[in-house]
Design a protein around this nucleic acid. Structure first.
Lengths: 221, 221
DNA sequence: GGTCAGAGTAGACAGTGCCTAGTTCCTAGT
DNA sequence: ACTAGGAACTAGGCACTGTCTACTCTGACC
């Protein structure tokens, strides 16, 4: 009814992106309980019903956040792994150079170390977001976030495959070993985000994890 | 002001326990978002302000739930580990019998397998509760839950020490290895509670985890 | 130029957590 | 036996939230 006395444009233009960015900040600084659609709307200078045009639910907003989180996390560990070897670790990397040994210090190993470290660093930087990404849903995760999570796992598989080609372990075990290392890294992150261990401890733990993992994985003949 | 027309006693007697039990059920069946102090009060047949006598906060209720969760989880993995070897695995167990080998199938190994399996089974049974126990707090966890979490970790350490005495790995590494296995098991659980893998996959994953862990841990000379 | 869907506004409603004042009961202490 | 006091509980109110609905504005397209 109000004739809207303001001079600002009726259409915000990119409300969705603004809401997501602000939500991410709130999540980081004050936790998920402090995330309110109405507050986000106020901060963006729109009415309390405006977010509904972009997110049908509060849950939809959270899903979008989780989805973005998975994409960012995948990018970061891919980048970290790629930075260790000269070329990238994207999909069909060059075949292994035949380096043998137990793999605990090969080129594949350093990529694994870098990726794991980047993963946990993400957890330190964005504890609430990672928590949201892996939170227990009463109903299964939505299509979009499941896809994004899948992409993260695919990235992990890529990195693990490259390490296998470098001789760190048998290529036939890549599937199961990827699952295992993913779980381990996620577990270390959970210990960090829940405040159970310090970041210093987590660094050492990542080191131990990779060392034991490589020794155990290559021991399987 | 109302003269309380009911005939039921004024004092509920054990409201606190009833609230916690009911809260646990709601958590299990409808997730943490469905947990409302007022609804719990209604279900218990008391006024909406009654819970405040026992839990100053909604957060306090959640803390109490998490605390109970830690205790139960610790009990379950201790029991599972104890059931593998004849005697219990409590604290100062009998010294190892000198069994050598790489430890991937020794007596300590089966205790580890049982404990890990019990942990993940707990996650399957109580996903939302486990999530709550390891949720990212903007402020550090309360005193009580930190203590309960500590007790869980101590239980893990006990089990790991017993396996070390059985020759699974060097006793000097127990501290770091406990942290590592705890993280791994928690990570597998997170994959389950977030609906990323099925329970069948989780069983196989636990198996792989223990195998790789023992191979890697004992490989460290 | 009219129309039509998307984006935003504004109001209402049920529900929640939290606070406060008052009431009831149990349990000491004398 | 009586009374003081504290713990447990009731009842009302406040601010806030998510969600629904009806309405309005705007730009783009025929």
């Amino acid at each position: 009814m109000g004739p809207m006395p303001d001079d600002r444009p009726f259409h915000h233009g990119n409300l969705r992106a603004v809401l997501l960015d602000q939500a991410e900040t709130v999540l980081r600084e004050r936790g998920i309980d402090a995330l309110s659609l109405r507050e986000l709307a106020r901060a963006a200078g729109v009415s309390h019903g405006a977010p509904r045009s972009h997110f049908i639910d509060r849950a939809a907003l959270l899903d979008a956040l989780a989805e973005r989180g998975f994409v960012r996390l995948a990018d970061e560990i891919r980048g970290a792994a790629a930075r260790t070897s000269g070329a990238g670790a994207s999909g069909d990397g060059a075949p292994g150079d035949g380096t043998s040994g137990d793999g605990t210090s090969g080129r594949g190993a350093s990529a694994l170390r870098a990726a794991a470290s980047a993963y946990v660093r993400f957890a330190v930087r964005e504890p609430a977001l990672l928590d949201l990404m892996f939170s227990a849903k009463v109903v299964g995760p939505s299509e979009a976030v499941a896809g994004a999570a899948e992409r993260l796992f695919a990235t992990m598989t890529d990195i693990m495959s490259t390490a296998a080609e470098a001789g760190a372990y048998d290529a036939r075990d890549v599937g199961r070993l990827t699952l295992l290392l993913s779980a381990t890294v996620q577990g270390i992150s959970a210990l960090v985000t829940s405040g159970r261990i310090t970041t210093d401890q987590s660094d050492a733990l990542v080191d131990d994890a990779i060392t034991v993992f490589l020794a155990g994985a290559s021991a399987g003949r």
